[in-house]
Design a protein around this nucleic acid. Structure first.
Length: 800
DNA sequence: ACTTTATGTCATCCT
DNA sequence: GGAGGATGACATAAA
């Protein structure tokens, strides 16, 4: 009955889809609720094989967290949900657009943040291939988290609230095509999520900033009092009215208004240049002239061509007359723009809209972070005010950070950021226009204004640095960044890195775990090695790695046998062993071409025979115990090797040790002393050959092991180097973050002091700063692409 | 009974 | 060209 129900529902949904495709719309919910039996025959046709179980989509399903991945109902549940959403999506006319919407779903125990970036071809997000090389551990961790990976491909409109919705048909098809996309999806989601977090941060800031600006505008008197003569001097110095009278044009025309900025530096005590110098010293920044040529304005044009413009741009120009400031403001701006260039090299010509959304359905408290991407447009009206914890938004995605150089709106983020960020949908339009107008608006994330706590803004790694690290390290990097953001010290981060390394296939440093088998194995092998180290000659007189003799005797009862340590070989095969622990083993240290078999003979054949009889391997001891009543010669024969037996059978007058280990000259002399027949000579030569070859084989095996150990050591060194690079990267990210904060403070100062011809402030909600090769433009937010380019060309070079 | 591991041996190549 | 080292392949014993 259960299967019948499943088939019914499934088939009904598919049938509905088919009807919908041909124009017939059905209320599937009604059908499902009533479960009309008449369609049963139709439904029985398609089976579950028709619709694969998509665990990654299940993970994306908000309701899917309540179902165990191994639940029997999983398939049914998921299929139903997916198909139902697919049908629901048919209600919305979806014209395939070239825009790309990246969904970020950040879920806290009770809240969810969904950031949507909108722009660019949707194909870009589907390129999970480049992100495939991700640490499996994290992927598995996210997978194991189950609900933690709260990823939902939501459709625009009502689905924006987090309801499960099907993605684009294209993406849907891709996801249906394979069930093992979950890992890639997770990886991709993780990366995009981090990118979107940055974008989302900008949004929140904007709202707060608008309110703040408004509140500030309500108290002009206070500000005037506070500013005092400073503002007056500002006005005088800028001579803004005079400039605007010449260039300020109606918003419809799109003309720009030059604004003098020079005196701004007088009130900003910035150490930005220092930071920038540090950045330039450490980063492979592009040449500044190059940046001037390919400045962010081109990026702006590319990204804003699709949106019409209705307002003007106001170029801000700083007069030279007021440049009596201790710091050269223009230089600072150029430095900033030089940083922006880094971004321009990597940033796509895509405008990104970020939306922080709430998902009331997320109840899984275990989830800490999750992300989802999709190619959907999210109506701005669907934005919901939501308290969002963005402390997870630590991300080494640099490409998305730089394009947004200056966004006064971001100021607001900082205000509430450390804990909660409130997003207002009322400003979404402005944000869209802003982001659509230029990617520069978010170049620098604003620093927290009121918080002395941890920074939640993501440390940004410039793209040149991302190339330093493999994508497979992204997750580790992210964790490290997160650790840094969380206030981890370098040492702690290093420890984290070590822990992360342990997840890799070759975990070379297992010394942390005292209970690990390595220790026991190591000690065992060490004991064995110590016992065998003193061994001199084997049964056949071979020396070195060959089977032990005297020393092994003492250990024979305990099972320590043989010069070539089986224990050690076992260790070498165990990847979790730390090879460094074995460097102290004498045998291993002398592996390479340590032909110890050239040592002088120690015992004669008879002596050695007695020795081997008394102190051989454990098994032989057992044999001896079992056969102690037997004649000694039989026992000796049994303990001897084949060559020894042969030598005895052939009445060879000297021991195999001599045969094998004597130098060629002495060996020839020895043969000359004795009158031996051809069979004896042949046997002696064979014994010598085999004996030498045996030792050679042992040496060869030792050498192989040594090579393996060296390779492991090399891997260990590389991992250490990687950890060091990660540390450096975190430092760079810190520096960039500080730079962003500086720039943000500059932006705030600028907006705080800019006045129009009527003496009113420029609201950050209405204007934004655009940086180009020729200077800084004050652009209205509602300006469209085409018009934004016009003032760009008309702007005057920023004066000093 | 089967697998794994260690070791010996042979063939081959090279010095 | 022989001696011997290096090494892959195989055999065998032991666990």
């Amino acid at each position: 009955m259960l299967y019948l129900k499943k088939y019914f529902t499934e088939g009904l949904i598919q049938f509905t889809i088919l009807l919908s495709l041909i124009g017939v719309r059905l209320d599937l919910d009604t059908y499902l609720n009533n479960q009309l039996p008449p369609l049963r025959e139709i439904i029985l046709g398609p089976s579950s094989a028709y619709t694969q179980t998509q665990f990654h989509n299940l993970r994306n399903t908000l309701d899917g967290y309540g179902i165990h991945p191994k639940s029997v109902d999983l398939d049914h549940f998921f299929t139903t949900r997916r198909l139902l959403n697919q049908v629901r999506s048919l209600d919305h006319l979806r014209v395939p657009s070239t825009e790309l919407s990246a969904w970020l779903v950040h879920r806290d125990p009770e809240t969810v943040v969904s950031a949507t970036s909108q722009s660019g071809p949707s194909i870009a997000l589907d390129n999970g291939g480049s992100l495939e090389d991700v640490n499996n551990s994290e992927a598995s961790a996210m997978r194991g988290a189950g609900g933690a990976s709260e990823t939902t491909y939501s459709l625009s409109g009502e689905d924006s609230l987090g309801a499960v919705a099907p993605e684009d048909s294209q993406e849907q098809g891709e996801r249906e095509s394979s069930d093992d996309l979950s890992k890639e999806d997770i990886d991709l989601i993780d990366i995009l999520w981090r990118q979107d977090i940055d974008l989302g941060a900008g949004r929140e800031v904007f709202n707060y900033s608008s309110r703040q600006k408004e509140s500030e505008a309500d108290k002009p008197n206070e500000e005037n009092e506070e500013a005092g003569g400073r503002e007056e001097s500002w006005r005088n110095g800028l001579n803004l009215q005079a400039v605007q009278s010449l260039t300020h044009v109606d918003g419809e025309t799109g003309e720009s208004i030059p604004v003098e900025l020079t005196s701004l530096g007088a009130q900003t005590s910035l150490s930005l240049q220092e930071c920038l110098r540090l950045l330039e010293a450490t980063f492979p920044f592009g040449e500044e002239p190059e940046f001037q040529a390919t400045g962010p304005t081109s990026q702006l044009r590319a990204s804003t061509e699709e949106t019409p413009s209705t307002s003007q741009g106001i170029p801000l120009q700083a007069p030279l007359s007021q440049s009596d400031t201790p710091l050269d403001l223009e230089q600072q701006w150029q430095d900033i723009m030089s940083i922006m260039e880094l971004q321009d090299m990597e940033v796509n010509n895509t405008a990104v809209n970020v939306t922080i959304n709430n998902d009331p359905n997320n109840n899984n408290a275990s989830n800490t972070e999750s992300a989802t991407i999709g190619s959907f447009e999210l109506p701005r009206s669907t934005l919901i005010n939501q308290d969002v914890s963005l402390h997870q938004a630590s991300l080494p995605s640099c490409s998305q950070d730089f394009p947004t150089l200056f966004n006064p709106e971001l100021d607001s983020t900082r205000v509430q950021r450390p804990t909660l960020v409130r997003l207002s949908s009322s400003n979404s339009s402005n944000i869209n226009s802003t982001f659509g107008a230029t990617n520069l608006t978010r170049l620098f994330l604003p620093p927290p204004l009121n918080s002395t706590t941890n920074l939640t803004t993501t440390p940004v790694l410039p793209d040149p640095f991302s190339s330093l690290l493999e994508e497979s390290m992204l997750d580790e990097i992210s964790l490290l960044d997160l650790a840094m953001e969380e206030g981890f010290s370098q040492d702690q981060a290093s420890q984290l890195e070590d822990e992360l390394d342990s997840d890799s296939g070759l975990s070379l440093d297992s010394s942390h775990s005292p209970a690990s088998p390595s220790n026991s194995e190591t000690s065992c092998s060490s004991a064995a090695s110590s016992s065998s180290t003193s061994a001199t000659f084997s049964e056949e007189g071979a020396v070195g790695y060959s089977t032990d003799s005297e020393a092994a005797t003492a250990e024979a009862e305990e099972g320590a046998v043989g010069g070539y340590q089986p224990e050690y070989s076992k260790l070498c095969r165990m990847s979790y062993q730390d090879p460094s622990q074995f460097h102290g083993i004498p045998q291993l240290e002398n592996v390479n071409h340590n032909h110890t078999y050239n040592l002088p003979l120690a015992s004669s054949y008879s002596e050695r025979s007695q020795l081997s009889a008394s102190c051989s391997k454990k098994g032989r001891d057992k044999q001896m115990q079992q056969t102690k009543l037997q004649p000694p010669q039989d026992f000796v024969d049994r303990q001897s090797s084949r060559d020894e037996r042969r030598a005895r059978a052939m009445d060879i007058p000297f021991s195999n040790d001599k045969i094998i280990n004597l130098p060629v000259e002495e060996f020839n002399e020895l043969l000359a002393k004795h009158h031996l027949n051809e069979d004896q000579l042949s046997l002696i030569r064979d014994i010598r050959r085999r004996g030498k070859n045996k030792m050679a084989a042992q040496n060869c095996r030792k050498r192989k092991l040594d090579t393996i150990l060296k390779l492991e050591q090399g891997v260990q060194d590389l991992q250490r180097e990687k950890a060091q690079l990660l540390k450096e990267k975190m430092e760079y990210c810190k520096c960039i973050r500080q730079t962003k904060q500086k720039v943000q403070s500059l932006s705030q100062e600028l907006f705080a002091q800019l006045r129009d011809e009527e003496g009113r402030r420029y609201s950050a909600s209405e204007y934004f700063l655009q940086y180009g090769p020729d200077g800084i433009l004050l652009m209205p937010r509602n300006m469209t692409t085409e018009q934004s380019n016009k003032p760009d060309k008309k702007q005057k070079d920023k004066k000093k």
